[in-house]
Design a protein around this nucleic acid. Structure first.
Lengths: 234, 234
DNA sequence: AAACAAAATACAGTATACAGTTAGCCGGCG
DNA sequence: CGCCGGCTAACTGTATACTGTATTTTGTTT
């Protein structure tokens, strides 16, 4: 309990266990790409930052490992360096799951969710115009959370969430390209229209195309930036 | 280290961490339905059984929770009681993933894997004839492991493994019905033929049908046995 | 006898201490 | 100057002790 000094936004939560709070905090950081791929996460170090003992931090890290967000080494934890094959694999799964999920969401779309989707889309467009990548990523995540929230099959939604998160870090890099961003904004617009129409078939088709485009954009960007075919450390 | 008395098959392993060994052991027990749905898994109790402290056991249990095999309560851990909606959800995901995975495996089938598939199929048929449910389940798992082993996309294979495992416990119950077993043996035979032909399209179609049949058989069996629509404790 | 409240209990969560392992470093040797 | 072998330090893994809380049980009251 030495000093709550540099503690983030997390000194408040009460009802959840400490381990869960740390998990949520770390997950947020990972999702926003706040953890560099070469950075080592050391439990005792993080524990000092949170003002806790190692145990809850360790529990959180272990859980993140089990979910594929981190890999544990004998010397700290780190984010996995995905090779192009890893990315291909993840996109293969997304291609199978997301169209069906989108269809399901379109059939169960609510006015509130549509509102959220519209807001996220507008925000994304604004950020695109202003070349504000960070904001665009946040808006992107909000859009995804909004439609995935309408998927009745929670296991499906959570599985998608996880795999999308796994490529999030690498996606961050691809959004540097202006044309990639244009493709994303375009796809989001189409999806929004399909959700608004509550048309499952259309949503499914749009989502399939969206995933394909995202994958193509990634490999185009990766090809441009460099063929670093990092060996799979999944 | 009080007594290695009732320790299972697990006093030997060395290179892996204790937590991992316990995890593997518990996972095996869960997969084989050795843990009753009402049974409580208590860390200190298990720890005594393994001759270890709570920590590695706790780590294993927490990991199983993260992977959906268990749910943690304030009073021990237990296997989740899946309601019919949960089962429906899991089958929806399997229906999306397994055909593609089967196609992939068919395209990459090896002679050794085919041999393993053949053996498992024969074993399954024999067990079916002898009404030996336990052996049939083991053969079933061997068959699955054999073809999933040929799926290049490991994330896909592991995701399938996990969801199949989750319905395994409930599946065990459905295999009591002789006609369900007949359907399974039949589907396995068809799949084996498709794999032997190394025909991705055929494997995909067979797998799709197999999953559909399995789901239908489950709900038929559940309808017969009783409409216990257990509330989702996923 | 049923219902409620208070106490006991049994468990997970958390903290601290210790052990084991490996990566990184430094010095000796070719 | 570069390579190899032992040394050191920095981690994770494991053990033990303590705490908090929810469930169960027991006792009391109507």
């Amino acid at each position: 309990m030495i000093l709550c000094s540099a503690a983030p936004v997390e000194s408040i939560g009460r009802r959840d266990s400490l381990a869960e709070q740390v998990y949520a905090d770390l997950l947020g950081k990972l999702r926003h790409g706040r953890v560099a791929p070469d950075q080592r996460l050391v439990d005792v170090e993080l524990a000092r930052g949170y003002g806790l003992s190692r145990m809850p931090v360790r529990d959180a890290l272990l859980r993140l490992v089990a979910e594929g967000y981190l890999i544990g080494t004998t010397r700290g934890f780190k984010v996995p360096a995905l090779g192009s094959q890893d990315v291909r694999d993840i996109f293969e799964i997304r291609r199978l799951l997301e169209p069906q999920a989108a269809a399901s969401a379109a059939g169960a779309m609510s006015d509130e969710a549509l509102e959220a989707l519209g807001t996220a889309l507008a925000e994304c467009r604004r950020a695109h115009g202003a070349d504000d990548i960070d904001t665009m990523i946040v808006a992107n995540m909000a859009f995804r959370a909004a439609w995935l929230g309408r998927v009745a099959n929670r296991r499906l939604a959570e599985t998608i969430f996880r795999f999308v998160d796994h490529v999030q870090a690498v996606r961050l890099a691809t959004l540097r390209h202006r044309d990639t961003r244009a493709i994303v904004v375009d796809g989001l617009g189409r999806l929004h229209a399909a959700f608004q129409a509550r048309d499952p078939e259309r949503a499914s088709a749009c989502m399939g195309r969206f995933v394909d485009d995202a994958q193509a954009a990634f490999f185009r960007a990766a090809g441009v930036e460099g063929p670093q075919d990092g060996p799979a450390q999944s």
